[in-house]
Design a binder for these strands. Structure first.
Length: 268
DNA sequence: GCCGGAGACCGTCAAGAGAA
DNA sequence: TTCTCTTGACGGTCTCCGGC
């Protein structure tokens, strides 16, 4: 999706992504979530007081400088050689030639095999030219699991040894077609319910109407999902714009100071 | 309060792509 | 070839806001 920069420096968000990279932590990075094809990485850095943690967002471009954007000001927890602008709402950590010692960029082999060597040239070209669907983007972003769930409450065990059980409750599950599934922390998603086998009629007109109803219901839900993904995608792009603008600003500032330094040395 | 424009959201249709 | 999924396009509804 990103990583295609034209001669003007503009990034084409619809351009295909390079193979994703994973960030392994060295020291300060305690948690990371790889957002693969957009190459946006969410990191959680320990704040200086050991209480709060600081969310940062990074855009990793394999052949370019990396940018780390922070949602809030962070303390300079990284080693020497890094440029950290903590006075601005969106800080930038520049890593020219790997000067960001806290992070290592490593190639992954497991998360994406779409660039394997035995791919046909045609398929490769398709991958390079075709715009990925929002679903693919969202899957790359780490979400997007779709499940068909029977009516009733579901418990999910996410911790080791059965700790941390979450309960999903389904509302309006008695209505035909679908139910809202509510997650414990207020998140909701919509699950179409499969037609019960006893209710399916074999009559011509009625069957047609039922089929149409099902199609409309599915499409309605698909459209809703598509819009949601599109919004998320646009948000992602906006974040990226902000990150790149900050990077641009930082580079301009750096250039300015280097120029001044050069002029000073020249006059001496 | 009323009206009109803007923006957000929704449902539906249609076309294209990919899977079966 | 058929089916399903995804998404752009279109029109409708609702809400908010500024002007009158």
């Amino acid at each position: 999706m990103d990583g295609m920069v034209d001669e003007n420096g503009t990034v084409d968000p619809l351009a295909p992504s390079p193979p994703p990279v994973a960030i392994s932590s060295v020291g300060v990075v305690t948690q990371q979530q790889l957002v693969a094809s957009t190459n946006i990485v969410h990191l959680t850095l320990p704040a200086s007081n050991n209480h709060a943690q600081t969310q940062v967002q990074s855009v990793i471009q394999p052949n370019q400088q990396s940018v780390i954007q922070t949602a809030a000001n962070i303390q300079p927890v990284l080693g020497k050689g890094n440029v950290i602008l903590v006075s601005k709402p969106n800080s930038v950590i520049q890593t020219p030639q790997g000067s960001l010692h806290a992070l290592q960029v490593v190639e992954t082999t497991a998360s994406d095999d779409s660039y394997s060597d035995d791919e046909s040239p045609k398929k490769r070209r398709d991958l390079l030219t075709r715009r990925p669907s929002y679903r693919k983007i969202l899957n790359d972003l780490g979400g997007g699991e779709i499940a068909v769930i029977p009516a009733g409450a579901i418990q999910i065990s996410s911790g080791e040894g059965g700790q941390s059980i979450h309960t999903l409750s389904m509302t309006n599950s008695g209505t035909a077609g679908a139910a809202i599934v509510q997650y414990a922390q207020g998140q909701e998603f919509f699950v179409p319910v499969m037609a019960q086998s006893g209710n399916i009629t074999s009559g011509g007109g009625e069957d047609q109407a039922r089929k149409r109803e099902m199609r409309l219901l599915k499409n309605r839900e698909a459209a809703r999902e598509c819009r949601r993904k599109k919004k998320e995608y646009i948000k992602c792009l906006e974040n990226r714009v902000a990150v790149l603008e900050n990077q641009n600003k930082a580079l301009i500032d750096e250039l300015k100071s280097l120029k001044e330094l050069y002029c000073k040395q020249k006059t001496e």
